[in-house]
C-alpha cells in the first residue's frame, strides 16, 4: 500500500506545477451553473415547481452535480494510456513494481484530492455570487451514503477509463470511443438535466447501470431526495466495481502482448 500512497502524494504535488490549468478548471465550473441559472431561470419564470424541484433546489442540484463532475478527473487515464500505447512508450508502466490499474487509481486519487480543495472553494464562491439559497440535507445518514457513493463512483470512472485506454492495444485510435463516452457520460450522470425529468421506464433502466450512482444519485441525496435508493445504489456500484476489476485484469492480460515497445 505504501507505494500507492507515494503515487498519490506525487500526483497531488505534481498539480502545483499546473497552477494556471487548475485556475481555469475552477473558473469553468461556473459555466454549468450559468447554464442552469439562465435556462432554468427562464423555465421557472412562469411556474414555482418542475418535477418536484423549486428554482433554488434545482440550482443546488446543478451546483453539487457540477462539483462532483469537476473532481472526476479520470479522463486523463484513458488519454495517457492511449498516447503511451500508440507512441510505444507504455513500457514505462510495464516495468514499474506496481499494478498498472492500481497505479492509475492512485494517480487519479492524488489529482482528485488536489482539485477537491479548490473546487470546494469555487463552489462556495458561486453560491455567494449567484445568491443561491443552497439546499443541503441535514440527515447524516444521507450525507454518509452520498460520500460513500461518490468515492465508489470515482473508483468506477477510473476503471472505465482504464478499460477504454487499454483498448488502444487493439484499436490504436480510440479517440472516437473517448469522445462518444464523454458525451454519453455527461447525459447519463445527470450533468445535463436531473434524470428524474426522463420517462420512468428509462430511469428504471438507468438504475441497473453504474452511471446513475456516480453523480446523479449523490447529488439528489445531498439535496435531501431519493434517500430510499441509497443502500441499493451502494451495493450496485460495488458490484460494478468488482466486475470491472475482473474484466480489466482479463482484458489487460489478453491485450498487452500486442504492444510493440519503442526505445527499449
Amino acid at each position: 500500500m505504501k507505494k500507492y500512497w507515494e503515487i498519490i502524494k506525487i500526483s497531488f504535488k505534481g498539480q502545483i506545477a499546473w497552477r494556471f490549468d487548475v485556475a481555469m478548471n475552477i473558473l469553468f465550473t461556473v459555466t454549468r451553473i450559468l447554464f442552469a441559472y439562465i435556462l432554468w431561470g427562464a423555465i421557472f419564470g412562469q411556474r414555482d415547481t418542475v418535477a418536484g424541484f423549486t428554482f433554488q433546489t434545482m440550482l443546488s442540484y446543478y451546483i453539487i452535480n457540477s462539483f462532483l463532475s469537476q473532481i472526476e478527473m479520470s479522463d486523463g487515464v484513458s488519454r495517457e494510456l492511449s498516447r503511451r500505447i500508440r507512441g510505444g512508450t507504455f513500457s514505462k508502466y510495464m516495468v514499474i513494481p506496481a499494478n498498472v490499474q492500481g497505479y492509475f487509481m492512485a494517480q487519479s486519487g492524488g489529482v482528485t484530492a488536489f482539485y477537491l480543495i479548490f473546487d470546494l472553494l469555487a463552489t462556495v464562491i458561486w453560491i455567494l455570487v449567484f445568491r443561491i439559497r443552497f439546499s443541503f440535507t441535514t440527515d447524516v445518514t444521507m450525507i454518509l451514503a452520498a460520500a460513500g457513493m461518490v468515492l465508489l463512483g470515482l473508483v468506477f470512472m477510473v476503471q472505465l477509463n482504464y478499460f477504454l485506454g487499454i483498448l488502444a492495444f487493439k484499436y490504436q485510435d480510440i479517440n472516437l470511443f473517448l469522445m462518444m463516452k464523454s458525451n454519453l457520460v455527461a447525459f447519463v450522470t445527470g450533468t445535463m438535466i436531473p434524470l428524474v425529468l426522463l420517462p420512468g421506464t428509462i430511469v428504471s433502466a438507468m438504475r441497473i447501470f453504474p452511471f446513475y450512482y456516480v453523480a446523479y444519485l449523490p447529488s439528489m441525496l445531498l439535496i435531501g431526495k431519493n434517500g430510499e435508493e441509497a443502500i441499493m445504489g451502494l451495493l450496485l456500484l460495488s458490484a460494478w466495481i468488482l466486475l470491472f476489476l475482473a474484466v480489466n485484469k482479463i482484458v489487460y492480460r489478453c491485450l498487452r502482448i500486442r504492444f510493440d515497445g519503442v526505445g527499449i
Partner: peptide, 26 residues
C-alpha cells in the same frame, strides 16, 4: 459524424425531457 450526432441526439433528449414537464421555455 458519430461524435456530433450523439451530442445533438442527447440534446434533443434533454429538451424532450424538459418539455415533458413544461409547455414553453421563455
Amino acid at each position: 459524424f458519430f461524435v456530433d450526432s450523439s451530442l445533438f441526439l442527447l440534446q434533443l433528449l434533454m429538451f424532450n425531457a424538459i418539455y415533458s414537464q413544461v409547455d414553453s421555455i421563455g
